[in-house]
């Protein structure tokens, strides 16, 4: 339950807070998975639909697409930590 490496600096959460954090993390993972499916479909899948199977080019593209999405995810996390100390997106 530390998919993004969060949680390290929060030693004394109550069990309710832990459950809420776990739920929020699961929602994030689901959300990320759905975005991954959409993005890699857009970048890798031939929209002609001449056949129902994945061809070699599409399969390879998908594997690399997932790998690069994860790497992007890690990099963005690092950038946010560096850049965003105390950052507020300005919401009410």
């Amino acid at each position: 339950m530390s998919f993004l490496g969060f949680g390290g600096g929060q030693p004394q959460l109550s069990s309710t807070q832990k459950i809420q954090a776990a739920e929020a993390e699961l929602d994030l993972i689901t959300d990320m998975f759905n975005k991954l499916v959409d993005n890699c479909h857009q970048k890798c899948i031939n929209k002609q639909y001449n056949e129902g199977g994945l061809d070699k080019t599409e399969s390879n593209c998908l594997d690399r697409c997932v790998a690069k999405y994860f790497e992007t995810n890690v990099k963005v996390g690092e950038n946010m930590q560096q850049f965003g100390q105390g950052f507020q997106p300005g919401r009410q």
Binding site: D27, D31, N39, Y69, V76, P89
Partner: peptide, 15 residues
């Protein structure tokens, strides 16, 4: 939740 949404949108957009 808002933070996580921002994060997830950011990853998607830059990817």
């Amino acid at each position: 939740k808002d933070f996580m949404r921002l994060y997830s949108n950011l990853v998607e957009r830059c990817f």
